[in-house]
Simulated assay, not measured.
Amino acid sequence: MDVIQRASDAEETGEGGQKARDRVLFLRDELAPSAPCMRLGGELREKREGMGLQQQDVSTALGWSKSKVSRIEGGRNAVKEQDLECLLSLYRVDEKDQEPLRELALIGKRPMWWKPWSGITTAYLQAVLSFEDMAQRIRSYEPLYLHGLVQIPEYAQALIERGPDQGYHAALAELRQMRQAKFAAARGKELICVIDEASLRRPVGNAQIMRRQLRHLMELNEDPRYQLRLAELSRPNLPLEVGPTTIFDFAEALLPTIAYSENFDGGLVIQDEETVDRRVKKFDELRHMCLNPRKTTQKLHDLLRSKYYR
């Protein structure tokens, strides 16, 4: 299906000979990058560039297609053992540096916890699950609905049931609950979530579900791992043009920050450094203009009384 790649396989050269090294991928049904494979691919890319080689040089030397080299470096393919050994040899990687790369390759081939749901989930959702699994901090703004990690089961079920019924609704709802449980159980993770007031005033399900959902948000805001901020409808000039955006921050030296944006047709995975930086700055600008967590809790309480207890 469609894959939009900007300045990737061709490794286009910009002004001053600076290579445009990173990618912007639109995922629909194609292979999705996984965080462990992306980390290994990034390491291999650095080794290749350290040797002064282009992807075409590698494909010619090893008798591979150039797209295979690109998929490995982009994290969209788990690296086979024999392929990794060929790359280590070609890049003349020191013995002491080889074992960490082999370990990454093994991790990339292990079944992920969401494998039982892989047949009913989209490629872009699987990419999100991978990023959530390894991210240390997640920053998100969703203008239409609440982020999946803060939805109560009834709210999630009401959203899922809007999709075509192929017998998967119950399984998808179960996956969302498991996703939340995994995040809550992980140590050191943090979620910073900007909630648009419009998404709370537009009921999902019914008033009873929304009452439970708002109470749940207030409870989450008491947990230091969650920081919920409300974008008020009455606040002028909020920088909402950032649109639906999730930013994944990883532990130092694990992966660079990744931005993700989902729409009706698929998901945009953004690794391009300048593009990610622009989204991060715009998101942080929005976050700082929103209500702080304490005032957000008070606003949620007021909204609960004024709209869903009338």
Rank of each mutant, 00 (worst) to 15 (best):
M1I: 02
Q5W: 07
Q5R: 04
Q5P: 03
Q5F: 06
A7L: 07
S8L: 05
G14Y: 05
G16R: 06
A20P: 03
R21T: 04
V24K: 05
L27K: 01
R28C: 03
E30Q: 08
E30H: 05
L31H: 01
P33R: 08
S34D: 01
C37Q: 05
L40N: 00
G41S: 09
G41Y: 14
L44M: 12
E46K: 06
M51T: 02
L53F: 00
W64C: 03
K68S: 01
E73G: 13
A78C: 10
E81S: 08
L84N: 07
L87G: 15
L88K: 13
S89N: 12
Y91N: 10
R92D: 09
R92T: 03
P100W: 15
L104A: 01
G108Q: 11
M112F: 13
W117T: 00
S118C: 06
I120V: 12
T121S: 04
A123L: 11
L125T: 04
L129N: 09
S130R: 05
M134A: 15
Y141W: 02
L144W: 13
L149S: 03
L149D: 02
Q151T: 06
P153V: 06
Y155M: 11
Q157P: 00
R162A: 00
R162M: 01
R162H: 03
A171R: 11
A171Y: 10
A171T: 08
A171C: 04
E174Q: 13
Q177R: 14
R179V: 06
F183D: 03
A184I: 10
A186V: 02
K189V: 08
I192G: 00
I195V: 08
D196P: 04
D196V: 00
E197M: 02
M210D: 10
Q213W: 13
Q213F: 15
L214N: 01
L214I: 14
L217M: 04
M218Q: 15
E222L: 11
P224E: 14
S234Y: 13
P236G: 04
V242C: 10
G243I: 01
G243E: 07
P244R: 04
T246S: 08
T246H: 03
I247Y: 08
I247P: 11
F248M: 01
E252D: 15
P256C: 08
T257W: 10
I258W: 01
E262W: 08
E262Y: 10
N263D: 14
I270L: 00
Q271T: 06
D272V: 14
T275F: 12
V276D: 06
R279Y: 15
R279L: 15
K281C: 11
D284R: 14
E285K: 09
L286F: 07
C290H: 11
L291W: 15
L291D: 14
N292S: 12
N292T: 12
P293T: 12
T296E: 15
K299P: 00
L303R: 05
R305F: 11
Y308H: 06
Y309M: 08
